[in-house]
Amino acid sequence: MNSIPPNEKTHGIELPQPTAGPMICAFGFTLMAAGIVTNWIVAVVGLTALLAGAVDWFRNANPDSLEMVAPPAREKPTPIVPRPGSVDHLLGDSSHRARIPMEIHRYRDGMIGGAIGGVVMAIFASLWGLIAHGSLWYAVNLLAGTLRSGVADLSMEELAAFSTEGLIVGIIIQAVMAITVGLLYGVVLPLVPRAPLVFAAIIVPLMWSGLTWAAVSVVNPALGDHVEWIWFIASQVVYGVTTGWWIIRSEKIGTMQNWHYVDRIGLETQRTGGNS
């Protein structure tokens, strides 16, 4: 920033002169409005004030705006002192004004990891159905129940029985959810400062379970009755461990900022806080 000195011919800076015209106008206008609910005389007084203010205003603004020379400021602003060398570089000297994260996982890896995690989780959950309820299909029917109506009416036997529709709906839900969450994991994990696997395998599954638990009891209590939450959490953890492990061991690639436009993308911190 530099600056232009004020016009020397005018010996100062011109500012519009103060005027009460606009205020009187506004007052008159309000009185006119008030006249509707009080008395017509109020409105007449308002109109008079409006006109008086308008004349004053007009004379201030025409033919040229009435100006006055601003008095010179008594205080001058403190000059800004350059502080060369005080910019702190975020990620070492090579990457100036970088965006975090510098390296990310491929979207592909996130989706593949999600798919693998989804399959493992499905196997695990089906095993739970087999052990706890003696049916391989119990879990998938429950999952399908989040979209299909009428789970509440189903008996335990019906839930345990094989159903083509349930299987198809369940697989679709599982695939979509697993791959989407895997993609999100791929994007988010590089942002987690410490122990991304803990985040992926424990924190997120617990948070997701808590959210589901809270939501299901309101949205679909009948469905909630059928879920055993320890197993639910366990299967989420299974997914989190598998997907997180897959993504973390996959190769990272640099973001675009490492390619051509390193110099053009901005981010920096300063070495010192307050004033230096």
Binding site: M1, P6, A70, A73, R74, K76
Partner: peptide, 10 residues
């Protein structure tokens, strides 16, 4: 000050 800036900034 009333005129904001002593000199027009650039």
């Amino acid at each position: 000050p009333p005129h904001n800036f002593d000199e027009d900034p650039i």
